[in-house]
Nucleic acid binder design. Structure first.
Lengths: 329, 329
DNA sequence: CCGAAGTTTGAAACCGATTGCAGAACCCTG
DNA sequence: CAGGGTTCTGCAATCGGTTTCAAACTTCGG
């Protein structure tokens, strides 16, 4: 059986109240008493019962994290960052995977919301009204999506895509293709907007292949459209899709990067292991996880005092083997 | 503010005790009263406060899951299985990633153990004594490791590796290489034992390349040893390493499977997307997660009544593009 | 029609912490 | 040295449920 505050109190010869104060509001108790209490607690290996504390303070010491699909390598990295930062702050993390299903997601949220102090939500395409009602009842940080006044952590897609387009332009490419992710995804909209602006500014032609599932198969499916369009370079919604592209292009007998250049977004592990290695817009995924926790914790501390409840993380183009000079035809 | 049991009691015109009973021990209350209580609860959207309940029952309704490295694609699948099954049983899951660090792991365990009813531990190389002390104080299920009387879920490595060896033998291979994972890993020991037995039985020569980190780079590092050894086929500790092998072999100008056949273990997503696609021993990872939760829950219900606190999951060789007939030289 | 047994319900104790309030001890000032 | 102000500590209430216990009410056999 675990030691309770009463036992520590007896051991130290004080009342439970004093023990509680010595531990959580040290300023309020005389230093010699405090010392005695701390030693007693140490001796007995005392650790306060979180449920009991939570009952009266209304805080659980837990955070919730909801991701759409843990099988997408983007998310494990994010989770790691959240984990690490939460642990430092002495919070534990509930993880839930919604399997890309917005309905399952709202269930998860409902269940989880009651057991946590705050929630980190990666919900690229949940309904806006759901998010609003949620934000009204829970402290919430969204990742990879910006919406109204809901606190969020996003990547600077504009900059990253700008770098990618500049890179392609420098290699002499005039026509670039875009392989889109889910239609409803905020990131997809943000990215294509950035791409439109960047290609226009660079005087390049843009061919949009459409929307595809954000998986390997999505990239495979898009490849033939890309080939038919006659572009010399292509940017994909994420790395997994870019790898799908690469695979299908190879099967079709095209050489990357001699015949066509390919760029992904995310910088997942596999992108440095494919052949050719994948040029990609690198996102600081773990850092995003940490930033989300930081933001969440500061919101918990002073609900309205956070000046700017938004973080935008930098992005960086990593040039690898899948991009080269435009073919001269 | 959330509705409490008292409000439901008032609404239904009964005492809080009756509400509690109506909800958790329905047999003890008169059916018309029960009905009235249930409707009142429904109307007010009542849900019992888990912290309060946990305080008196000693149960939290939470499970803990500790994995060594979420970046290894094996684990997200496992996590998904655990998640899904836990949700069905109305448990929430704390996830922690130990970053392959046994010391961090014991910390995590200590912190988590107090907030959960039971723990699922993937700790291929934690110290045996740590595991024993843990098992003594917590309800615990280990995954991918069998040790003493600690309840566990493992894969039938023998069978899977037997299938792989039989496949290679049928293709005419006489010499097979093994690219090992971490030295201290239980799975590694189990697999090489199985491999020794299978190759001996088939009259094949076995070359063991040694131990490598269970990552892409580990496979890369092993490749040259494998080439130098003159084997015509190789089995790797896991798919990620096998993909590393594939990459390095290609860089060295060897053709897979014409010059050398490669087999992985795990069946991660990427193994069907590489080129060539990877022949692999498929493990039912999600099923393992579900099985671990099932086992854990039955242990929680009747701590000593579980006949055989072990599950062994089947494995299945998937023949894909990376294996072919042995080269004739 | 009485007492025993069985059902159903509520009062109150309890889980393990935190915290408002009040009293005790001490310090300072005039 | 009285009186006001601090500082420190303990009592008791509280959070929101569960559970023990006993009372009240039924049912049933004899």
């Amino acid at each position: 059986m675990r030691t309770t505050i009463r036992e520590v109190a007896r051991e130290a010869g004080v009342s439970p109240s004093t023990v509680s104060r010595a531990l959580s509001m040290p300023g309020l108790v005389n230093s010699v008493t405090r010392e005695r209490v701390l030693r007693a607690a140490q001796r007995l290996g005392y650790e306060p019962n979180r449920a009991a504390r939570g009952l009266i303070t209304g805080k659980t010491g837990n955070l919730g994290l909801i991701v759409p699909d843990l099988a997408n390598p983007f998310f494990p990295s994010l989770v790691k960052g959240v984990q690490a930062r939460a642990r430092e702050a002495d919070y534990a993390v509930f993880l839930a995977d919604s399997d890309e299903d917005p309905a399952a997601e709202s269930d998860l949220v409902r269940v989880l919301a009651k057991q946590v102090d705050g929630l980190i939500l990666c919900s690229p395409r949940g309904r806006e009204e759901d998010i609003l009602t949620l934000a009204a009842t829970t402290t919430l940080v969204m990742v990879n999506r910006r919406f109204g006044r809901v606190p969020s952590v996003v990547f600077d897609n504009s900059d990253g895509i700008g770098q990618a387009v500049a890179h392609l332009a420098a290699l002499g490419h005039k026509r670039v293709g875009w392989v889109g992710g889910p239609r409803a995804s905020w990131s997809d909209r943000d990215r294509i907007r950035a791409l439109r602006a960047a290609t226009a500014a660079a005087g390049m032609d843009l061919y949009v292949a459409g929307h595809f599932p954000p998986q390997f198969e999505g990239g495979v499916a898009a490849a033939d459209l890309i080939v038919a369009s006659g572009v010399t370079s292509v940017i994909a919604y994420n790395d997994v899709m870019a790898l799908g592209l690469l695979g299908r292009l190879r099967d079709r007998g095209l050489r990357v990067p001699q015949d066509i250049s390919v760029i992904g977004i995310d910088d997942i592990q596999m992108s440095s292991m494919s052949s050719p290695t994948l040029t990609t817009v690198s996102l600081a995924k773990e850092q995003a996880g940490r930033a989300a926790v930081d933001l969440l914790l500061s919101l918990l501390e002073r609900p309205d005092g956070v000046r700017k409840p938004r973080r935008e993380l930098p992005t960086q183009l990593l040039v690898r083997g899948s991009t080269g000079v435009a073919p001269t035809d």
